[in-house]
Amino acid sequence: MSNTFLRLSVLFVVLGVSLGYWMGATHNFIVSPVHAHINLLGWVSMFLYGLFYRVFPDAAAGWLPKVHLALAVIGLPVMMIGLTIQLLAIASLMPVVPILMIVGPTLVLLGMVAFAVIVFRATGGKPAAAVA
Results as ranks from 00 to 15, higher is better:
1 M>N: 14
1 M>F: 10
2 S>T: 01
3 N>Y: 05
4 T>W: 05
6 L>T: 02
8 L>C: 06
8 L>F: 07
8 L>E: 09
10 V>N: 01
10 V>F: 12
10 V>C: 02
10 V>A: 06
10 V>I: 15
12 F>I: 05
12 F>E: 04
13 V>G: 00
13 V>A: 09
13 V>R: 13
14 V>P: 09
15 L>R: 02
16 G>A: 09
17 V>T: 13
20 G>E: 04
21 Y>T: 13
21 Y>M: 10
22 W>F: 12
23 M>G: 10
24 G>K: 01
24 G>I: 04
25 A>S: 10
26 T>Q: 13
26 T>E: 13
26 T>L: 06
27 H>Q: 10
29 F>H: 02
30 I>K: 04
30 I>W: 15
30 I>Q: 13
31 V>Y: 06
31 V>F: 02
32 S>G: 06
32 S>F: 02
33 P>L: 03
33 P>Y: 03
34 V>W: 06
35 H>A: 00
37 H>R: 02
37 H>I: 00
37 H>Y: 13
38 I>Q: 01
38 I>E: 00
39 N>P: 00
39 N>G: 00
41 L>H: 00
42 G>K: 10
44 V>R: 04
44 V>I: 12
45 S>Q: 03
45 S>V: 13
46 M>L: 11
47 F>T: 05
47 F>C: 05
48 L>W: 08
48 L>Y: 09
50 G>K: 00
50 G>T: 00
51 L>G: 10
53 Y>R: 07
53 Y>V: 06
54 R>V: 00
54 R>N: 03
55 V>H: 11
56 F>P: 04
59 A>S: 10
60 A>P: 03
62 G>D: 05
68 H>F: 11
68 H>S: 07
69 L>Y: 11
69 L>E: 01
69 L>F: 09
71 L>T: 07
72 A>K: 01
73 V>Q: 09
75 G>S: 09
75 G>T: 03
76 L>R: 03
77 P>C: 04
77 P>V: 04
79 M>G: 08
80 M>W: 02
80 M>L: 05
81 I>E: 01
82 G>L: 03
85 I>E: 11
85 I>P: 03
85 I>H: 02
86 Q>Y: 12
87 L>I: 06
88 L>N: 08
90 I>G: 08
91 A>W: 03
91 A>M: 06
92 S>K: 09
94 M>H: 03
95 P>E: 06
95 P>R: 06
96 V>G: 05
96 V>M: 06
97 V>Y: 06
97 V>P: 08
100 L>R: 04
100 L>H: 06
101 M>D: 08
102 I>Y: 07
105 P>S: 12
106 T>A: 13
107 L>P: 01
107 L>Q: 02
108 V>E: 15
108 V>C: 08
109 L>A: 14
109 L>F: 14
111 G>S: 14
111 G>M: 11
111 G>R: 11
112 M>D: 10
112 M>A: 15
113 V>S: 10
113 V>A: 15
114 A>V: 14
115 F>E: 10
115 F>N: 07
117 V>W: 14
118 I>M: 11
120 F>N: 15
120 F>V: 08
120 F>R: 07
121 R>C: 05
121 R>D: 14
122 A>P: 01
122 A>H: 10
123 T>C: 09
123 T>V: 09
124 G>S: 07
124 G>H: 15
124 G>W: 13
124 G>L: 03
125 G>K: 01
126 K>G: 03
127 P>K: 12
127 P>V: 14
127 P>G: 12
128 A>W: 07
129 A>Q: 12
129 A>G: 14
129 A>T: 15
130 A>F: 12
